[in-house]
Structures are given as structure tokens and as C-alpha cells.
Design a binder for these strands. Sequence first.
DNA 1: TTGTAGGCGTTATCAC
DNA 2: GTGATAACGCCTACAA
Lengths: 332, 332
Amino acid sequence: MATIYEVSKLAGVSLATVSRVLNNSASVSEKTRTKVNQAMKQLDYKPNAIAKSLASSRSDCIGILVGEFHGPFYGTMMGGIEKEFRAANKHIVVTASHCDLEKEKEDIEFLISRNCDALILHVEAVSDEYLINLAQGKTPIYVINRYIPQIADRCICLNNELGGYIATKTVLEHGHRDILYIAGPKVKADARERLAGHYRALREFGIAPDVEREYFGDYMQTGGYAGMQHFFDKDLPVSAVVCGNDEMANGAMSAIREHQLDIPNDISVVGFDDVLFSSYTHPKLTTIEYPIAQMGKMAAQLVLQDVYKQGECTTPHMFEPKLVSRDSLSSV
Amino acid sequence: MATIYEVSKLAGVSLATVSRVLNNSASVSEKTRTKVNQAMKQLDYKPNAIAKSLASSRSDCIGILVGEFHGPFYGTMMGGIEKEFRAANKHIVVTASHCDLEKEKEDIEFLISRNCDALILHVEAVSDEYLINLAQGKTPIYVINRYIPQIADRCICLNNELGGYIATKTVLEHGHRDILYIAGPKVKADARERLAGHYRALREFGIAPDVEREYFGDYMQTGGYAGMQHFFDKDLPVSAVVCGNDEMANGAMSAIREHQLDIPNDISVVGFDDVLFSSYTHPKLTTIEYPIAQMGKMAAQLVLQDVYKQGECTTPHMFEPKLVSRDSLSSV
DNA sequence: TTGTAGGCGTTATCAC
DNA sequence: GTGATAACGCCTACAA
């Protein structure tokens, strides 16, 4: 691997000059510029990003922290972020922390130690205080799906409670009263918020929340399936089931079908997130839109604006959940 | 940010000694070791991965190249790789090249310039020669889903042609003769291979391939949906449709249902990949298993073995596709 | 067991 | 406009 030094020798100039044409900073005469460029071509010179990063303490890299690599939600989020950054010639380095406190901390430190110019975090386990403190540091952070008042300008989020409220309220407005709820993991704040919204809608209709009628799944198909089985075993009256996310709704639908019941005529199903496959389930899933691609895009734009002084971002930080009416919810 | 230098001063030892306890290399007396550790704690010292990488020309990072960030296939692949590496305390840097020649090359150079210790590539656009040449370089590469004889020991792949053959052969054995094929993008080698397998099965049953009965989609739900619409418009007799992957099968199923036809009684559907959601479609999708998580895991093990001298990997490089019989295929 | 010193490939601050 | 020359933070022979 040729270095800047060899280029400088071959071009008969100094290191500094090569560096200048590399970053086309300062003024370099057209003559020397072409000389240097030729030398670089001749040696097939490729700049060493690590060395550059060490010397400049910048990396043109943005660190991303997600829960998992798989799954339609995080995939869409990463896609939204990456698209925006690629257009700006920035790279992303992604790590998945599996919603584990130690891993989240480790991964954050890893990204910082790699000189990331900024961090975009979708974290669950770490405390608000930790993030507030982290935000004081040298590396700017942006938080997706979590609202922390002290660093509100760094948060991009959706009103999960409202989404949960809308979902259950819609079901109630369709006349359902025997409603089951398959929630996400208790450890996840968004799962708890959505559940809180569910409670609010229930109470508004004079129904007391009932632990018998809720189940905590894993936000995956298996969880929805298991939850539905759990309810069937208890033999509870049911006309609708509201799920903490679309994957679980998908799993629940599968279980319902295996019990020879029709969706939505026997049991209605509502999801949350509106991930891609939800337009292709049978029946098509009624759900709450979570514009995660846009939110990822916005986070990227914020970084571009704040850190790289490119473009500007005027999107509001708080997104509103919206009902997506399809075919899995019917009136009773 | 405290540096190794400040730690050395506070601990009253030399830089080298601090470095030693950091990498717990060589022998350091228990006394000095604790002295140094205390100093590090006191200063909240965090090693700078960039500097370490520059000095050692290693990074404990493995570069991964995928087609896209979203989608169940790549998501599962990344997950399989990451899980293995995390256990070994290695990190991954992922980029998505969108099946574009220039982007693939750029991304590979990026990963190399970041001192990745190895590369795991799922690339489409780049030529065999390019990869063979790349393999000569300093950074070891491993290629998923592509067989290149000259670097066979670096390839981890599935026999796509055989998979395509099995899919269509199975359909034929169920008595179907009016078969449609929704292929992946022509530019993707695996799509072409699967199609070739489809042809082979057809011929084996004395049926001449017919361009009228094939459609090239985008490997996404939209492509399957559009393909099915296309066929409906042409009003071809059909009793089964074989798809290049599960997403397209999912889209095709959606289109079939919208035409008030039953799956599998009116039209059977077969997919390819066996991604997660395929066990939860309605009806459950009959498909060809593509063990991408295991293949990712194996690629990671190869890297661990070859590059880091940890563990050993004896899995064969060529995986065999297998039929997964579920409910979307019936006999005619 | 510990310390010294040169080097990794760039950037950036000075002078000239 | 161009060239020395310190950094950047760490590793690693080589000595001691």
C-alpha cells in the first residue's frame, strides 16, 4: 500500500502538499496538483482512513446502535439512515446491542473509541441519566424512539402512548369489548407506553384493565403465537386482540387460524409499526404507522446539519402515530 | 480523554508497561499491574481504537458487505455473523452496496482503508476476476452466495441451481403442468441460477421453457405482486407459480387472493429462502430452505480460525438446499 | 520485569 | 504556494 510519503517523493513535493491536494484545501498550483494526482494514480494510492482519523480526530463515520440486525423494523431504520448518509459520502458503522445494558454501554464506547463523528442510538437498557451524561461528551448523540426532556433536541420519537391509545380506541369504536392485549417485553419502554395507551382507551370506555387479558411477548412472531395460545388455553371470551407490534400480530393471526377461526369475523387483530410485510398478510393488517424510515432519515439530516454543517433539518422531533385501516379489523 | 501517557505518569511506569497490561501481553508483575489498573480507573481511561489500529494495523473489526440493510434475508445473515463475532469480542462494520458496481468497489475500499481484519462479502455486481484479485491482497476475503473455483476455500455458498430444480420438480411431481415462474432480477447470479434449475426440471418433464411464462421481479413483495398481475393480464392457464424468493411469493399470494382465488386449491405457490415470516403466511409457504444464518455463522468461524487463530471450522463450504413442505402447494 | 525510542500514515501549524 | 515538523495515541522491537 502506497503512502502519502511515497507519493510526495514520486511527485517531487512535500508531504504537506500531497495532503493539500488530497483534501483540496488551501491553494495548490494547477501544475503541482496534476503532478501529485499522476503520482497517486501511478502508485494506485489509497488513503488510509485510520491514519487520517487519528490525525484529524474525525472519521466521516456515524455510529448506529440498534436492538437487532434482523427484523423489519430495524432493517428499515438502518436503510433510512444509510440512504441519507451515503448521498453525503458518510459511512455508518452499526452494532446491535440486543437490548442488554452491558452491551449497549460497550457498544457505545466502541463507537466512540472508533472516532465516530456522531452516534444515532436506539437503546433500551441504558438509563436516561446515562444518556444525558453521554450527551455532554465530545461525540454528539441522537436518540431515536425515546424522549428525554433534558436533551429533547437530540430526540427523535413517536408518541407511543398515543399510538397504543388510538389502536385500542379504534377497536372499541368498532364495538369490541372482549379485547386481549399482547404487549412487547416489559423491559422495553415503548412496549410499556403502548400498553399505557391501551389502558387509557379502555378506561375511557369504562372498562377496567385486566391482567388476565394481557400477555407479554417478545416482539417477534413467536411471541404473538404463544400469547394467543396462552389466551386460548384460558378460554377467555374474545372478539379482538391488539398487539404491541406487527410481528406479534402476525404470529397471533397464525395461531387464530390454526384454531379454525376467521380473521376478522371471529377475531379482529390490530398491530403496531406498519412494517413492510403488513400490507401482504392475509387479511391485510390494520395497524398503527410508525414512520421509522423517515425518523432515521431525519436523524441523519440532523447529524448532517449539526456535525457536518450540510443542509438543514426542520422536521419536528415528535412524530404522530396514525391508524392504517386495512382488513383485519371488523365491527362487531 | 485520558491517554495511555497520562496513565503511565500517574502509575509511575512507562508507556510500554501500560500497553502491556492493556493487552495483557508479556509478563507484568502483579504489583505494577494493579497500580496501572488503578490509574486507569482513576482517569476513566478508554483506549483509543483508532490509534491502536494504526499502530498495530489490526482493528478487531470485520467488514461486512450486504445488498441492503432491510429485508429478512440480509437481516438474518448479519445476525448470524454478528452473534458469532460478538462472542469472540470482534466487531463488525456493515455497509450496503445496493447491488451497484461502483458502490461495491467503493465500499470494499472503504472497509480495507479502515483496517478491517477480514471482509465477508455478499456481492453481486463485481466480477469474479475482481474478487480473485482482491483475494491476493493483504485483507482476507470471504464470499457468501457465490462460487468462484479459484478461491473456493473462501466461498460459502448454496447450490442455487439445485434449489431451483427441486422447487419446480416438486411442483411437477404434484401434477402441475401450467407453471409460472417469477424470477429475481436478471443481474443477480443467484436469480439466474435458480431459473436455470427451474428449466432443468421443466425439461426433465418434457416441458419446453416458455418466456411467456416467466417474469423478472425485484426480489421484493412488490415484484411478486406485479408479476402475478402481469400474468393475470395475459390470462394464461395456471395452476402453480414458483417464485425466486419468499418475498415475491408473498406478494404473489397477495395478488392471487385479490383475484378471489384460493391458495393452494386454485393456484399453488412455492418460494425460496425460507425466511422467518414464511412460517407465518397464510397459507404457510412451501419453500426452499436457504440456511443463511448458518452460512453467516460459518463465514464468521472461518475468519476466527484463519485470521484470529481461534477455534476451528470444519463445515463444508457448499450447503444443500432442502424443500420445506408447508401448505401452499397442493396436488392437482 | 521494565523502559527507551522509533514508527504507523495523516493532518495541521508554522515558517519561508 | 510550498515545505519542515510536530502532533494524534498506541504498539513493539530492542535494551537494560
